[in-house]
Amino acid sequence: MHGQPDRIEQFKADIAELRITDPSTARDQLAVRVGLGGMALGVVLPAIAYAMSHGTTNALSQRDAIVLALAGVACAVAGGALYLKGALAGFLRFWLVRDLHERRAQTDRIVTQLGGGDQDPQSELT
């Protein structure tokens, strides 16, 4: 067919050149965890800020507390987005695979109905 020893060497070279990345599921799990952490910070930081501002009459400290509280809100929003991204990616990947499978099964059914298939129940016994 073709020069297989060369082909195998070429294959090894091609594989060696591949950019190996983390599995996408690991990335999604990381996004979910970081997102949860961000949302937790969104709860904790405003609480700390409230305690800071309530315990002082110094306007400068109170402004620091406002900045801290706003940072907490930003963490919550960013964390929520990351969480949503990670959670949806897993679901959509599964949905896509299922959709592809359904389409292929439907095409096979149509082809069988049109009489193109070589269906032979006996073959399943071999």
């Binding site: 294959f11 090894k12 594989i15 591949l18 190996i20 990345t21 996408s24």
Partner: peptide, 18 residues
């Protein structure tokens, strides 16, 4: 594959390699 760990490599990259 061919002596290299390919966990996480995309299907299209593997297909291009062979």
């Amino acid at each position: 594959v061919a002596g290299r760990r390919v966990n996480g490599v995309t299907a299209d990259a593997l297909a291009r390699a062979g």
